[in-house]
């Protein structure tokens, strides 16, 4: 009881200490959690990567990373599997670069597209991540995807739609050997 009263009196006399204590407590919790979780982070990331890649290119596992030496600056990594590749691309979006992973069969058919990272506007460009109707349009395209022709853009997010299209075409270009600098093409569509 005495200790409780002393603490109460301490905080009453020094009002600034209450928020400072809250900040320090939050820092301690976050630093401890980060230290505890650090050991499992790499393992979980690897698991998630394998899971996503095996969904983008069904039956393609195991995947091995291949060094990319092409000219296309949009391609950041290539993972070759059985019968095709999963290509990681980074393309300029409306707000920030968008990371798009594309599964492509060796004959150039797109088997899967997923957006791994983006900072587009909520309710507009960010919908590209979850809009199945939009993403499904790229399946079985062969590097010929174009917004306004065989791809319908997401309403209010034409720039994001064109950016994703550009990423998909770049990935197909890598697999089919039509790997040119797609970065030079304005908005890919």
């Amino acid at each position: 009881m005495k200790v409780g009263k002393k603490i109460k009196r301490f905080f009453k006399k020094r009002p600034l200490w209450k928020p400072l204590s809250a900040i320090v407590l939050a820092i301690l919790v976050l630093v401890t959690m980060q230290a505890v979780l650090q050991s499992v982070k790499a393992e979980m990331e690897q698991e998630a990567r394998e899971y996503l890649m095996s969904n983008l290119l069904l039956g393609g596992a195991p995947f091995r990373e291949e060094e990319y030496t092409g000219e296309d600056e949009l391609i950041t990594a290539v993972y070759r599997g059985t019968g095709g590749c999963v290509v990681e691309t980074l393309v300029d979006g409306y707000a920030a670069p968008i990371a798009v992973w594309v599964g492509v069969r060796n004959d150039g058919h797109v088997t899967g597209v997923t957006i791994r990272d983006m900072a587009e506007t909520y309710g507009l460009g960010r919908n590209a991540m979850f809009d199945v109707d939009f993403l499904v349009q790229f399946l079985r395209t062969e590097g010929d995807a174009a917004v306004g022709e065989n791809v319908d853009a997401i309403s209010g997010a034409t720039v994001t739609s064109k950016a994703v299209t550009k990423a998909v075409n770049a990935a197909v270009g890598f697999v089919t050997g039509a790997d040119v600098s797609s970065g030079a093409t304005e908005w890919g569509g």
């Binding site: 939050a26 919790v29 976050l30 959690m33 979780l37 499992v40 979980m44 990331e45 998630a48």
Partner: peptide, 19 residues
């Protein structure tokens, strides 16, 4: 802010496929 940061940290580590 602590709660949001903790949630982001947990998602980052335990569910890395979530953006």
């Amino acid at each position: 802010v602590g709660g949001i940061c903790l949630t982001m940290l947990l998602f980052d580590v335990l569910a890395p496929y979530v953006v």
